[in-house]
Amino acid sequence: MITLLQNFIDAVSLGSLYALTALGVGLLFGVLRLINFAHANFITIGAYAIIVPSTNAIATLYIGAWHWAVMSTAVVVIVVALAVVTEFIVFRPLRRADPPTLLVASFALAYALQYITLLIYDGRPKAVDIGSNLAEQVMVGELRIPKLEILTIAVTLALIVSLALFLKRTRYGIQIRAAAEDFRMARLLGVRANTVIAVAFALSGVLAAAVSLLFLARTGMLAPRMGLPLVLIAFVATVIGGMGSLVGAAVGGFVVGFASVVLQVVLPVEIRQFRDAFVYLLVIAILLWRPAGLIQVRAITERV
């Protein structure tokens, strides 16, 4: 019973990271029909932002040495700025491009950003020490829960609730949802495409920054491709959730998180290293069963 609960909490916390990433990816897909590979770079660069830029093998904390609240704010600001700038430089000139072109463009952007990161910081992984006190465990009865898992779940919950409120209650939120459904009609009602898209990029930047820090605290390691596995999982999560549905993206994230933990537990030891392959197989299986994903939305066609 205790191990079951323990696994459940692991699953929720891993699923939280996936869900946050999937929401960041899903938001841009909803508004722009863009599958943003560069989201991986947003996460990676957010994590690297806390150290002094250099190619030295030893990382020196800079922003990471500040008070946690200031550090988090700084990372959010940096990633949001990066997201908005890439929108402006790369995606705005491609406003009329079709989804496959956007897909390739984001792939190219991701490739360039990855190697820029590598040029600045060097390709070797670097150990960093942030939030080591989060490794402590809290005892709840017989249950040992690492503080980091509690923090991850709490932050995810807070971000999902805030995002939902933003999309439901605010002017830009409602405009984003209208644009996600029928961008041309929204523009006919005077909704500014550039504003809505910039806000969507900024939101996805906030989500990416949160993942940067939570993920870094989990692994304690910086690497130029650290964001990639998360984003690949997030793509898969948005597909099984039903592309274009934010609820679907979040649900998909948690489903993949649970699947990973369950597989980790039930797979025999000798094939456990293939766990991720089973996760991806599961995705293909779900797609066979429901080609439009778990949460189905109306036809995804028109854009700006």
């Binding site: 496959p100 793509f235 898969v236 197989l281 995705v283 293909i284 797609l287 066979l288 080609p291």
Partner: peptide, 29 residues
């Protein structure tokens, strides 16, 4: 066979899953 039944964008993502699967399997076997 299963992947080609999906719509364009979903199929693209599914092909990504193929890349990941092959990488995980060959990389760990």
């Amino acid at each position: 066979f299963p992947i080609m039944r999906l719509s364009g964008i979903a199929a693209s993502i599914a092909t990504f899953a193929v890349l990941a699967i092959v990488n995980v399997v060959y990389g760990n076997w």
